[in-house]
Design a protein around this nucleic acid. Structure first.
Lengths: 145, 145
DNA sequence: GTTAATTCCTATGTTATAGTTAGGATATAG
DNA sequence: CTATATCCTAACTATAACATAGGAATTAAC
């Protein structure tokens, strides 16, 4: 599977923050109850998103997280990359350590690069605002793991 | 990773059959030497492709495999699905056993379905003929795992 | 017919990753 | 002070990826 639970939960976390934004920090406990994801797991995911600058934390009692910008300014691609790292569909396109010693001779690499491009084009073209559009209070996904 | 070695090797196997087609069966041993993939692993992959009807085997000495149709009649999507099964980027879109009990309430499912669509559109739009286009004898990928 | 080469079938092992839980340190509102 | 949070990172478990292995069945060539 290309996108692990971490990436999917990150998107739900961000959507939850966007939907429930009333001007104060939202705790992971609240998100946990709404989204049915353990606080401990959410902590790790929030850590990634925070390090990327996409959410801002307040520590201590009454603490929690908020978005750092408006929902329409996040692409889903950014959110997923913050938690999943590289979204390459195949190992041999990994930027960091391209382990394929013969990429220049490979018949199939152009195809994979094209697929990678198609994926990025799609995910970068959808914003967090698009994701939460049309959501009402009953549309908070609690069971989708 | 979305596409495992099996799917990538399947595409290279098919490309090898297409490139080296001179009217007789090609053994996995030959493909193994050109592509640097073990015969034993190729056997499993060829089994999948054969069951899908994409290649035809001849058993015994001088046996091997051939394509069952011209390269431009295979989409890469078909080849990948034959070995990888479902190419859904997320678990909750798996057709067979959609384990998400609240898909109808899920905020993010539309996004994932859109991504799935973008992936399928791309991979179904490229043929095996496209993949081998421009290949000469030096362009057989031997090291790309 | 015997041999060598090949596909066919499926079991087994090994390694890596996903998915999660856990513990305790640090910070802050009340 | 206490309760409630985030923060940091280690550890565990289950699953899947990635192969290797063994032997049966089939066939061309001699």
């Amino acid at each position: 599977m290309m996108i692990s639970t971490k990436g999917r939960y990150a998107l739900r976390l961000m959507a939850d923050l966007a939907l429930n934004d009333v001007g104060e920090s939202i705790s992971l406990k609240d998100i946990s109850l709404r989204q049915d994801i353990s606080v401990k797991y959410l902590e790790q995911i929030a850590g990634n998103l925070s390090k990327a600058g996409y959410i801002k934390s307040s520590r201590g009692a009454k603490g929690g997280y908020r978005l750092t910008k408006e929902p329409q300014k996040y692409s889903v691609g950014d959110i997923l990359r913050a938690t999943e790292g590289n979204l390459s569909p195949v190992a041999c396109l990994n930027d960091e350590e391209n382990i394929c010693p013969r990429a220049d001779q490979c018949l199939t690499i152009d195809f994979w690069q094209g697929l990678y491009g198609a994926i990025n084009t799609y995910i970068d073209g959808v914003t967090l605002a698009d994701v939460i559009k049309g959501a009402d209070n009953s549309q908070k996904c609690n069971g989708c793991k």
